[in-house]
């Protein structure tokens, strides 16, 4: 049985905001199925009572003094933007116009 269907791949691509083509879907569905069947082997390990590890450094809540420090200027922050207007990032319309 397939671990993942073409429809599921299409749904995941939409969730991840990837406008994949039909051709890409055909390719990815088969490849991801092979990969998922291989990585599903983690399920063979008896680990019910084992705590998870998110990263290897035993540090939590690393804080610094709350002091003002120089950061990027507005010009620097906008320097790589595909489009900027009035000192801000310009984006396509978000809200539908009222009909």
């Amino acid at each position: 049985m397939a671990a993942i269907s073409r429809e599921e791949v299409a749904h995941l691509a939409h969730l991840a905001r990837l406008a994949v083509t039909e051709e890409e879907l055909d390719t990815f569905a088969g490849q991801l199925d092979v990969i998922l069947q291989a990585v599903a082997r983690v399920g063979e390990v008896a680990a019910a009572d084992i705590p998870p590890t998110s990263h290897s450094v035993p540090l939590t809540n690393v804080l610094r003094e709350d002091v003002v420090r120089p950061g990027l200027t507005r010009e620097e922050a906008l320097s790589g933007a595909p489009d900027a207007e009035d000192g801000r990032f310009r984006v396509p319309r978000i809200l539908e116009e009222e009909s």
Binding site: A40, V42, V45, A47, I50, P52, T53, S56
Partner: peptide, 15 residues
């Protein structure tokens, strides 16, 4: 749980 969560537990065992 079956994928990401289980992988994190396996990570503990590898450590």
């Amino acid at each position: 749980d079956a994928y990401y969560g289980q992988a994190q537990k396996v990570r503990t065992l590898i450590g």
